[in-house]
Simulated assay, not measured.
Amino acid sequence: MTVIVFIGVNVIGNPVEILVPPDADQAERLRVIAQLGLDKPLWVQYLSFLSGALHGDFGKSFVFSEPALQVILQRMPATLELAVCALLLAIVIGIPLGLYAGLKPDSIFAKAAMAGSILGFSLPSFWVGLLFIMVFAVQLGWLPSSGRGETRALLGIQWSFLTMDGLAHLVLPAFNLALFKVSLVMRLVRAGVREVLPQEYIKFARAKGLTERRVVFVHVLKNIMIPIVTVIGLEFGSTIAFSVVTESIFAWPGMGKLIIDSINMLDRPMIVAYLILIVFLFVTINLVVDLLYTVLDPRVRLESEG
């Protein structure tokens, strides 16, 4: 990935053309080029970057003149807050609706929910975000349309959800980001329920006289959780990595908006540091999901012991 980014940024443009004023003379241009280390061959720049990365130094941002990783970590809490809220909405809304649609597929409410999930898959997030702003911020005036609002410190980090103003600013972008996830979780849960209900162990559980609540929540839901946990874990990673559109529409000061600005300015250290951080995040999430398998499914523990 670092090789691709280094080559790609070098091919699509020269950051000096953006960073140096058009009226600057040749001496000023050469000074900036030498200061940024762009006067060296690309392979030398890449090896220098790798050497620094192994020591935790991803280089200085061309735009901010600060360590790239430090700038990204300053924006990370805003993106994490938005992604966690979107994921919680997907779980709280998607799992109950999918469970109901799977248990009572012929009911009008279940059919309406599944029809609504098609809209969640189909509607582009940028259009839905603009619609949310137009209706709830402009027409009704219920919620703010942009920014993060008032924040409060917790463990040395500023969070929006700790204040009422911050929560008001969080609602629209979180719902916009969660729309696709709700539809995905709902359809996944419904498919799992429809697949599990005819199984013999469900019939045996009912034959033993267990209550319907226990059958559903212990025998049905627990046995469909592995694919759901897998998808939710991957979607959490993708939400953090690709919340660019939502953050741009709602002017949310997170990593997504930062990476868009960095790409526009061809800020190579910032782009590479961001992508490496996202790769590390996905690897960590996959590890956590694999560990959750052993909690959810005893057969995984038995196979590992064997």
Rank of each mutant, 00 (worst) to 15 (best):
G8S: 14
V9Y: 11
V11I: 15
V20R: 11
P22L: 10
Q35N: 13
L42C: 11
Y46V: 09
L47Y: 13
L47W: 15
K60H: 12
E66C: 01
A68P: 10
V84E: 01
L88I: 12
L89R: 09
A90S: 15
I91K: 03
V92L: 14
I95E: 02
I95M: 12
S117Q: 06
G129K: 05
I133G: 10
F136V: 05
Q139S: 06
Q139M: 05
G141P: 11
W142S: 09
L143P: 11
I157L: 01
M164Q: 14
A168T: 12
F175A: 11
N176K: 01
F180I: 10
L184P: 00
V185A: 02
R187V: 10
L188I: 05
V193N: 10
R194G: 14
L197E: 06
E200S: 11
K203L: 14
K203C: 05
K203N: 09
K208M: 13
V218Q: 12
V218G: 06
E235W: 00
I240V: 15
I249W: 02
I249C: 07
F250P: 03
G256I: 00
M265F: 10
R268M: 12
A273S: 03
L277K: 02
L277H: 01
L281K: 03
V283S: 03
L287C: 02
V289Q: 03
D290S: 08
L291T: 01
D297V: 09
R299G: 02
R301V: 04
